[in-house]
Amino acid sequence: MTDAPLSLQDFTSLLSQFHGEAAPAIDAASDADALEAVRTKYLGRAHGWLKDLSAKLGQLEKTDRAAAGAAFNEVRLRVEATLETRRVALTPARVAGALADPTMPARRQWTGAVHPVTQVIDEMIEIFRELGFTVALGPEAESPWYNFGSLNFPADHPAMDLHDTLYLADDLVLRTHTSPVQTRTLQGYAPPIRVLIPGNVHRRDPFDASHAPTFAQVEGLVVDEGITFADLKATLTHFANRFFGKTKTRFRPSYFPFTEPSAEMDVLCGVCHGSGCGVCKQSGWIEILGSGLVHPAVLESSGVDSEKYTGWAFGMGPARTALARHGIPDIRLLYDSDVRFLGQFAK
């Protein structure tokens, strides 16, 4: 070889000339055969243009060869990538038929669902857990003492008429509320007590669009030193704002034998936001739960010092909330277990 050494500048201009021709030629190939011809011309191992360029590397000054080699590799990788992209673009017809139309549906598995009433209970538990509550349970067949006596129900009094009771025996009833678990918890554990009590309760109610003989209830109980009505109001208002989104609460006088003072809690009607509509019977408020300070007689019947300890409790029906939140018109749908209904609540 007698030629003068090739300059780095000349070599890079040869490289860019190569890239400038090869890339459009690859993109212009209209089928696999054309693409193969282009590949042979530019990248062929035996006689391709690139092969010629690689042979020219030897003509460079030794000091330039490293930089020239890097530039050469860069161009080679780019052109090869262009070729591969074009190859994929030209070959889908040979891949399995399904992906020819990627809009076809995925191969899905069955999706399960948590019952809408359980979803409400779960959300309540999540919110109250942040406030230090745990979960207590109790039996559904109860003695009248746990269901009524320990909870300060006066015997032979119209207060009993609010609980139309199903009897299993003289001394055994189906619990009419989750409140007997208040007594069981107070008997079993020393304060501080902060529990949520979900469970099914039973009343002698007809099964119609708005009543069911068995339904879920969620009870809350707090007992410790220095617990006040202001704590009740603050905690339940906090819960309402977490559960319903930013809202307002209203507390009004009520009556339960096992709380004193007693209060019903309303939240702003979600439909009219307080101005009054058919859903809230023009009141602007929706009744959510009953609550109150634990009656000292309840603490005393479980052997808790009612002078030292005070507490508050509430009870809520998650089914009512589920009906309202999902616009379910008939409570029986919650019990029928129709798969077309249950499937609507898949998360």
């Binding site: 406030l131 230090g132 509550f133 745990t134 207590a136 918890t185 079993g188 554990y189 020393a190 304060p191 501080p192 007590i193 902060r194 529990v195 707090v222 410790d224 009505f229 202001a230 704590d231 109001k233 603050a234 905690t235 208002t237 906090h238 209203r250 507390f251 009004r252 006088p253 004193e260 003072p261 007693s262 209060a263 300070l293 009656h295 000292p296 007689a297």
Partner: peptide, 30 residues
Amino acid sequence: RDVDLVEEVARLRGYDRLPDRLTASRPSNV
């Protein structure tokens, strides 16, 4: 009992007048 009178006072004053600040609490023993 005395609590029955507490309810009379609370409702006549109005439940809305009571404060509702969340305060620190001890965790559940259950």
